[in-house]
């Protein structure tokens, strides 16, 4: 269930005066079990990259292998690929269409060749997994749910096809603080049993620092950094150049360092607190 990308390039409207290099000779690997964060400013190529991962954009230059499916082969098995790689786009609630929640969630599994019975079982399981009251929502129209509920239904619609890899494009965009927290906890809880690998695009550095165990930084279609978040946020020179923000915990530790107060590179508030306390020991 690994992903291997080598020398991938992609150009929009090639050979015209309007051509735009979206991906420029990108190579990386994601092993099974990783939670990969992808960060970069708007237009850096993040979305184009993830659309390659399940064949929504056909590879023109370079190689991609996802779960042993070679995407550069002449006729890759796209159905199988897309059932293995679940993709959740930005504002996924805008893809809901069926007259009931249940039918909408069944759409994916039925497309991927599940029997009616298997699809319904998968849909029920997925709706429970995302924390919705199944009996309460199954026959309701997805359009009358609240924003947070709609997004959960959309996620269930992806999970119902039982993907092994989950790709999320800004899953918390537009949610209120509690909704954000719940969404991130949900994503964390999903990983394990059936979903092995999670890839997440986010503009929120606090989320990335807290949840990712590896980070790709994109800038102008290139990967300019590929490392563990702690290593990434220890070297802050890059953040000044790309205009990305530091997570708060890292920003605080950096400011403290400038005042001669070293507490390492904490990635979340608990680490921040522990490190401060360790350093302050005795000055209570």
């Amino acid at each position: 269930m690994s992903i291997k990308v080598t020398n991938l390039s992609f150009i929009y409207s090639p050979k015209t005066p309007f051509e735009k290099v979206a991906l420029d000779n990108i190579s990386f690997e994601i092993a099974e079990g990783e939670t990969m964060g992808i960060i970069g400013s708007t237009g850096s190529g993040k979305s184009t990259l993830i659309q390659h991962l399940n064949g929504l954009i056909r590879t023109t230059k370079g190689n991609i292998t996802v779960c042993d499916i070679d995407l550069t082969s002449k006729r890759p098995n796209l159905k199988k690929l897309r059932s293995l790689v679940g993709m959740l786009f930005q504002y996924p609630e805008y893809q809901l269409f069926a007259d009931t929640v249940f039918k909408d969630v069944c759409f994916g599994p039925l497309n991927f060749g599940f029997s009616q019975k298997a699809a319904e079982e998968a849909a029920e399981e997925a709706l429970r997994l995302v924390g919705l009251n199944f009996d309460d929502v199954r026959d309701r129209s997805p359009f009358e749910l609240s924003g947070g509920e709609k997004r959960r239904v959309a996620i269930a619609g992806v999970l119902a096809s039982k993907p092994k890899i989950l790709v999320l494009d800004e899953p918390t965009a537009g949610l209120d603080p509690a909704g954000k927290r719940e969404m991130l906890d949900l994503i964390r809880s999903l990983k394990g049993d059936s979903i092995k690998t999670v890839i997440m695009i986010s503009h929120n550095m606090d989320e990335i620092a807290e949840y990712a165990d590896r980070v790709l930084v994109m800038d102008n279609g290139k990967i300019i950094k590929d490392s563990h978040p702690r290593a990434l946020f220890s070297d802050i020179s890059m953040f000044k150049e790309t205009g990305l923000k530091l997570p708060h915990s890292v920003n605080i530790s950096t400011l403290l360092r400038a005042r001669g107060f070293e507490i390492g590179t904490p990635l979340n508030i608990n680490e921040l607190l522990t490190n401060i306390c360790d350093r302050m020991e005795g000055s209570k």
Binding site: D176, P177, A178, R181, D206, H248, S249, I252, I269, L272, L273, I276, C277, M280, K284
Partner: peptide, 21 residues
Amino acid sequence: TGLEFPTATETSLKLRGLGYD
């Protein structure tokens, strides 16, 4: 009310809870 604290605020509140002045 479903809100959250700014990171600095939460840190300072927790430090106070631990007895820091």
